Amino acid sequence: MSSKHDTLTYNTSYSRSKSATIEEWIALQDAWKEQLMLEPEVLCSAVDLESLLETFPLLGGVDITPDREHENVAYVGIAVLSSRTLELKYCQTYRANLEVPYIPGFLGFREAPALINAVECLKKEKPQYFPHVLFVDGNGILHPRGFGSACQVGLFLDLPTIGVAKSFLNVDGLNSLQVKDQLYQQENRWLPLVGSSNRLLGAALLSNGSVKRPIFVSVGYRIKLLEAVNLVFHACRYRVPEPIRIADHISREAARQALCRMQES
């Protein structure tokens, strides 16, 4: 296991510069969405977890923490675990320069290039730890235009990705209170999220028996929702899957250490 701290340069070829218009971003999302090639899914079908673990022996997770003092600086954490044992195999943090401002609904344009660069660096430096599926702290197709940051990361890496969000984004007639009420009133620990357009957008999960707040899972790229739900349940020791929890922890620690160094200087 290793952890270190390097600097990443934001690659605007994955998005647009600060001068791009919202209309250009929408057009890009619509064009990229066509490349997801989503297949219809039967929710009553069974998923063989053993087969999933064979297909995805290494689970990766990425998360990003903003710098407290610099608006366009952030720290990316990446963690890779054994899918069977959830043993941590590798983790690393990067300092990333962000050039695109945050606009609601377009988080991928700000953060996805930094996440993509981190995974590409891992593939180059430690290919033996390159994950077979990646958990992304954010939304996949559970998004106003069906193309959240998990889709953007997966598409450009050509890697199966799962969006795991800690807060709910109201889309397609769904709202947070309605979803939580339905989830709490049923016996199952997960609820399919079907919008007013009758499209399956994702799932709300109570990830283990002691969790009171749901997480929201959606397809990012090259994986089905039932597969994603089963992998998330398997990977959750606490509220969020271990790959994301660890990536979040190390990125926050990197941001904290950077703040301490600045205060001491």
Rank of each mutant, 00 (worst) to 15 (best):
L122N: 11
V62F: 02
Q186M: 13
D67V: 02
A203S: 11
I162Y: 04
G105D: 00
D63E: 06
I64Y: 01
S2N: 10
L191P: 04
G148M: 07
L38C: 08
G202F: 03
V179Y: 05
L193M: 13
L193T: 04
D48H: 09
I78P: 05
N139M: 06
D181R: 13
F168W: 04
D158A: 11
S218N: 14
F135K: 07
F233C: 08
T65C: 08
F156I: 04
E99N: 15
R222A: 14
A31D: 14
E99V: 15
A165W: 00
A228W: 00
F56M: 09
R16E: 12
D248W: 02
R189G: 12
A79P: 12
P66A: 04
D181T: 13
L226C: 12
I246N: 05
E41N: 08
L259E: 08
I78L: 15
K4Y: 10
S83T: 14
L38S: 02
Q186I: 07
A74E: 01
I22P: 03
N72A: 01
A235C: 11
Y90S: 08
R110T: 00
R213M: 09
R261N: 13
K180V: 15
L115E: 05
D67K: 07
A31F: 08
L28C: 10
L36Y: 06
I162R: 02
N188H: 10
P160S: 08
Q182R: 15
A114L: 04
S251V: 02
S83N: 10
S251D: 01
V240T: 14
R84L: 13
L86V: 07
P40A: 12
L205G: 05
S51E: 15
A27E: 15
S251I: 03
Q35W: 04
G60Y: 09
L169C: 05
T12W: 03
A254E: 03
S2T: 14
N117T: 09
D248M: 06
I250D: 07
Y129K: 03
C151V: 05
L134M: 11
E111N: 03
C44I: 11
V76M: 01
Q185D: 06
W25N: 07
Q182I: 01
V100M: 14
K124S: 13
P192Y: 04
H5G: 06
E125L: 11
S51C: 13
Y94W: 14
V164K: 00
R199K: 15
A112E: 02
N230F: 06
I246H: 03
V80T: 07
V133M: 06
R213T: 12
A228N: 00
D248T: 02
G108H: 00
L205F: 05
F156D: 01
T7H: 12
R213A: 15
R68K: 07
V179K: 03
Q128I: 09
A46E: 11
Q182E: 12
S218L: 12
R237P: 04
E242Y: 01
D248N: 10
H234T: 12
Q128H: 14
N175A: 05
I78M: 15
